[in-house]
Structures are given as structure tokens and as C-alpha cells.
Write a protein that binds this DNA or RNA. Structure first.
Length: 205
DNA sequence: AGTTCGATCGCCT
DNA sequence: GGCGATCGAACTG
């Protein structure tokens, strides 16, 4: 099995730029679709976004934000371009990026990444992964692989720290498939899941 | 203060 | 295709 990095971290930084805050201050659905192909970087690990879901505001009963502002949902209503990280099922962390202007709820759940840099470090964090495509092919898997926890909840990913989202200068072209969201019990027919057609790192089902 | 159940994963059959 | 693991947020009384 080849655990060699598709792109070395230094080369990634040289061939990409930080996604700025105004990108996130738009409709959650537009941001969700356009996050596909961008790269999440945390520390020495990075992965290209290949699957996302949009979670809307008060009318979206599948979204945490539908309960209004609580201690947990506060960051979803706050400034765009921040990470919303929550703990689920007693064992998994899930990563979202906050959208819409300050005061309006909206977030994009990152469901799968294509590993780009730091594959050996990811494998150390998720020894159960048999091959690179097992590393980040699910929302709980990718946070484990990149070392993302609730400690990063509310962090601004547009200010150039060690947790950020970057866009490649020369992205590969791709097609987008749209489906209903997965693993929810309400609004199960809303077409708010988007993934890169045919990408092997997309979570199953 | 107690209860419910969830934006999941991996192992078992 | 089913289920156990494991815990915290939010709602009930």
C-alpha cells in the first residue's frame, strides 16, 4: 500500500491560497458546493474536501441551529468562516464551517476528505485504516485523522493559523452529485448532500 | 435530577 | 443489515 503523500505539505502551501472570510458569508448551499475541491489543513495534515452536507437555519429540523441559539449552537449563528465542532454518539467529533453573514445560522458538515498531506501521521491516529481511502471517508474518521477536536470549536479558519481551508491554484475539474442527507431522521428528502462524482473517498451508502 | 437520543463507526452475523 | 460502544446537550418534571 502506498502511504506516500500525493502532495508534500510545503508544495501544498506553495500551490494554494487561504480561502478568505467573504467566501463563507454567503448562502450555505452555495458555500457547500464550492467547498468541494478545497483543502482542509490542520497542523501537518491536509485533505481535499470531496463530500459535504448543508445544514440550514431555524426551518431545517435536521440542523442543530433549528433549536435557536443555545450554548451549543452559538457559533453557528456567529461570524462566518469559523469551525463548528461537536461531539456525537459519545465518541465522534464532527467538523462544520459556519456560513451566512453574522447573526444568520448556517453550516456545512464536512463528510469526507481525500488525503493530501501527512498520510503517515493520519494512519498513526487511525491505525484501523487499511489503505489511504479509509483514512478520511466519513465525518468521524476525518476529524480523528486530522486531529480535530472540540477544542477547535469556534476557531477562525480564515486568519492563517495552523487550522485553515485553502484553494488550489490549479484545481482538477470534477462533476458534483446531489443527494439527500445521510444519517438524519428529519427533512430526509432535502437534496443537501453534495459530493465529487466517482471519488473513492466518499463515505459509503 | 433524571431521561432521551443523536449530522457515527466498526465489528459481527 | 444489525447492533453495541459511550457521553453530553437539551428537554421534562
Amino acid at each position: 500500500m502506498h502511504w506516500k503523500d500525493p502532495i508534500a505539505l510545503d508544495d501544498l502551501f506553495a500551490s494554494s491560497r487561504l480561502v478568505p472570510q467573504p467566501f463563507y458569508a454567503r448562502s450555505t448551499i452555495a458555500v457547500a458546493r464550492e467547498l468541494l475541491g478545497k483543502v482542509v489543513v490542520h497542523g501537518h495534515t491536509a485533505g481535499r474536501i470531496v463530500e459535504v452536507e448543508a445544514y440550514l437555519g431555524l426551518d431545517d429540523l435536521a440542523a442543530h441551529a433549528s433549536r435557536g441559539i443555545t450554548g451549543r449552537t452559538r457559533v453557528i449563528f456567529g461570524p462566518p468562516g469559523r469551525a463548528y465542532v461537536y461531539f456525537i454518539y459519545g465518541m465522534h467529533e464532527c467538523l462544520n464551517f459556519v456560513c451566512e453573514p453574522d447573526g444568520i445560522a448556517g453550516a456545512v458538515l464536512i463528510r469526507a476528505l481525500e488525503p493530501v498531506s501527512g498520510l503517515l501521521r493520519m494512519r498513526r491516529r487511525r491505525p484501523v485504516a487499511r489503505e489511504p481511502r479509509d483514512l478520511c471517508s466519513g465525518p468521524g474518521k476525518l476529524t480523528a485523522a486530522l486531529g480535530i477536536t472540540r477544542a477547535l470549536n469556534g476557531v477562525d479558519v480564515t486568519s492563517g493559523g495552523d487550522f485553515s481551508v485553502r484553494e488550489l491554484e490549479r484545481p482538477e475539474p470534477f462533476a458534483i452529485t446531489t443527494t439527500p442527507r445521510i444519517g438524519i431522521t428529519k427533512c430526509t428528502d432535502w437534496p443537501l448532500r453534495f459530493y465529487i462524482t466517482g471519488n473513492p473517498n466518499v463515505s459509503k451508502r
